[in-house]
Design a protein around this nucleic acid. Structure first.
Lengths: 205, 205, 205, 205
DNA sequence: GATGAATGAGTTTTCATTCAT
DNA sequence: TATGAATGAAAACTCATTCAT
């Protein structure tokens, strides 16, 4: 009984979380009612409350899964033994792909989570943790790049790390508002921008 | 009566909008009730509805004022006759200052507006319009910079314009989530990043 | 000053009452707001409240005017020195014309008054008074008709009087619900019905 | 669970509809608040809205039940195989009994429905349908009576049908306004009136 | 008196959560 | 555990009436 039950529980919870994620993404947290989730998941109210004690908790769970997945992907990517430049490229690629290139749903739920975290303390804690990790990954790349002379030595690593991490979120937001980006082009342009800058080659201060 | 009344009306509406902005900013649109606004503004429910026909309309008005102010500032800044580099610096300065350097309230209401626009059509229209204008301003700077040989000629202007505009929004979001940036440092780092890039000077493809 | 002022007052009150009657008629008492009356009359709220202490009072005034006019017309009609049959015909004609043949507005306001009276005591008193008078008029005709052998002597005068008075109200109600009557035809049919009845027993034209 | 649940649901809905009918009848639709219905039914607000989506829908349901019952009764009555005269008598009896002889509540809710229909389109449709059916029933009686020589052949059947149907409504209205009728007497008098008329011309009992 | 902005109790409706079955 | 009807606090909004100017 133990294993079967545990598996079954997972199954149900997945179903609920999937329904919730889809709705939070398309309608937003506030506009999504528990009845919506009941309808989308095909389960009963009681069942849902049996698994998640509140709507907020449900959101937090959706969020946690997203964050875990995102962190997992990041770790895998950032830890490869390539050169700093290559890692930078890979990391940016991944960022862009994860946040935006997929579907509007994926993009929207990411924003919903970020935005929610700005207001909700229990949400914020986890989101901040992820950002802190992410910043660290970026810093590692940057530091190594500088050490290996792949990057300029006067980079303000502490400041650039968040910039690299946040830009995609900003672009996601703009995408959601209606501007239809060609994400591959954006990716390429951003990479060129942060590597070579806008000034003509060889320009001196 | 005409002038006095009109002035008085403005006064009251400002009071309401100020209260609404403050609350939308600190609690968010959904978590702010009309009763909250009643309490904060010191006016009665009827008075508020006498001036703004619905909570949504009230939000839209708050938004419109923000957008108008922002656009006004942008126009003033971008139109100066400096070199492209100087205009770029000024524009980025302004972006950073306007969105973040001020107060968390200012920053938060900007995000609330952006985020709301992602879901609400009537809100989106105006916000998109502003973004379109902003992109144009950035493109103008970039184009001129390229023409004058201040910037690399292989810049993907169409793609970089949104990036320059969106990054601050992304950083604002991260700021709100808990990371305390030194905005002056961020500003400087971003300017260096987008001008010189991360690669060591003189690097070739 | 006295007369002029008094006349002016009348003028204003007429204007208000006209606007109110029109609105009560077309939208109904409950669905008509004081703001509607302000709009329709072109006067200010204060002005209206200066003349009528409440919405209810205003309705009662509209009602009173209607009742007075109706009673006046009735008196004029019923008091002519014709035969009972002729008076009956005239009276029915007048009933039909007053209530229905005119406009839907006239009809509707009459019903609004009647219906309101069923629920509102202050309204009821006056409306009942009018009905009592009307019943009396009908009884007088009937009684005289019987005395003069114009009508059957076994008529239940007490019962028929209300019937003659109420039928038009019932038909008005049905008219308002959507059945489009040819009122002249209805009038003729009703007159024939109540005079000759439906049975063929030796009745002659 | 299925049958039990369905029965239970009916039970609750009946309770709500009964409370609503009683209140709409005594206070009128507009003066009845959902809070009143909550109080009268002993259920909670949520429960009521769980069964009826709006106050208007609730009224419409009360109305529909009334109309269905009324139509059912009519069909049963009008379809008996008696002579036209007998059917006429039965039909009038039923009309009077159904509308008035019962209780003021029954009478009032009927009027509320009729009156409401004059202003509310969704209500009107159904009420008009019922009236159209009723007119048809009356016309059938009249036509058959004429064919069988029970009734005068010069009857304006189209016009008399509505009169027969509407008179009781008119009398109900007058009853509600305060005139206390002896309904059995009214019934008898009306029957005599419409059959024999008021003129004495050689009419025999 | 006239004005119309302001008042605030009252209205309909929603929805996260509970709990008897 | 699952169910879904019931709960009721809270939301957005209305409108007859008042009153400072």
């Amino acid at each position: 009984m133990p294993r079967v039950t545990e598996e079954y529980k997972q199954l149900i919870e997945d179903r609920i979380l999937e329904a919730a994620k889809s709705l939070f993404s398309s309608k937003g947290y506030h506009e999504t009612s528990m009845d919506d989730i009941v309808g989308e998941s095909g389960l009963s109210k009681g069942a849902i409350y049996g698994h998640f004690e509140s709507k907020e908790r449900l959101f937090l769970e959706v969020q946690q899964r997203k964050l875990d997945a995102s962190l997992g992907k990041m770790e895998a990517l950032f830890s490869t033994g390539d050169s700093a430049s290559q890692r930078l490229k890979k990391a940016l690629d991944s960022q862009f792909d994860e946040n935006c290139d997929v579907t509007r749903e994926t993009c929207m739920i990411n924003l919903e989570i970020l935005f929610n975290a700005a207001r909700n303390e229990s949400s914020r804690t986890e989101v901040e943790k992820r950002a802190t990790s992410a910043y660290k990954f970026w810093r590692d790349i940057l530091r190594e790049g500088v050490k290996r002379n792949e990057f300029r030595e006067d980079l303000d690593i502490e400041a650039i790390a968040p910039i690299l991490d946040a830009t995609v979120d900003g672009l996601s937001l703009h995408w959601m508002i209606g501007h239809d980006f060609d994400w591959n082009r954006m990716k390429k342009a951003f990479l060129q921008l942060v590597t070579k800058g806008m000034l003509p080659n060889g320009s001196v201060e």
